[in-house]
Computed example of a mutant assay.
Amino acid sequence: MPTSVPRYASRRKAFDRAVLEAYAPLYGMYQRELANLDIAVDTIPRMRLSADMSILPDEITADGPVPLGRVIPPAIDTKGNPTRARIVIFRMPIEQRVTNATERHEILTNVLTSLVANYLNIDPRDIDPSFQDF
């Protein structure tokens, strides 16, 4: 759509909307357990990972060595304020792996299922019996 049309959405906004659409069914299933969890989108992973790491930590969902999302547990920030737990989805690594909206929805659903399962400390197959790792 042209940028002058009210329904125009930048690629970033369209991705953010796709993340929320993929997350909604998970939130519906575990609303009480996910009430204190925030969802965020970052353009790229901003983590210090060692190049010799063959296995990434459980809180990171990745396609091979490329992180697609992660769970950040609640903590205390530099000013001493508590922070909420957060799932961060990395936009560019996901966008580079898809060619259309259907593929994007499938990969987002898979990444979010993995991350929500990690946050809830359950197996992703308990959420979606057809879940498959990357």
Rank of each mutant, 00 (worst) to 15 (best):
D77P: 10
L120N: 10
A85I: 05
L26Y: 01
P67A: 05
V19C: 08
Q96S: 15
P6E: 09
I127Y: 04
T99A: 13
S50H: 05
A75S: 12
L37N: 01
T113N: 06
G28Y: 05
D38V: 06
P6R: 13
T83W: 00
G80I: 01
T99S: 15
L49D: 01
Q31K: 12
M53P: 01
F90C: 03
F15T: 02
A117T: 12
G80E: 04
I60W: 03
V71S: 01
D58K: 12
A85H: 08
Q132A: 09
A18F: 00
G64M: 00
A62V: 00
M47I: 15
D126G: 12
R104F: 02
I60T: 07
P45H: 09
T3A: 14
S130I: 11
L20D: 12
D126V: 09
T113L: 01
P74Q: 13
L108C: 10
P45T: 08
L112N: 02
P25L: 10
D52C: 05
S50M: 05
I72L: 14
E106P: 02
I72R: 07
Q132I: 09
Y27G: 10
D133L: 11
L26R: 07
I127W: 00
Q96K: 15
M29Y: 05
S4T: 10
T99E: 11
P129K: 08
S54K: 11
T3K: 12
P82N: 04
R86N: 10
P25R: 04
P74L: 11
P124E: 03
N81F: 01
I89S: 12
L112C: 02
D16W: 09
I107W: 06
N118I: 07
K13C: 07
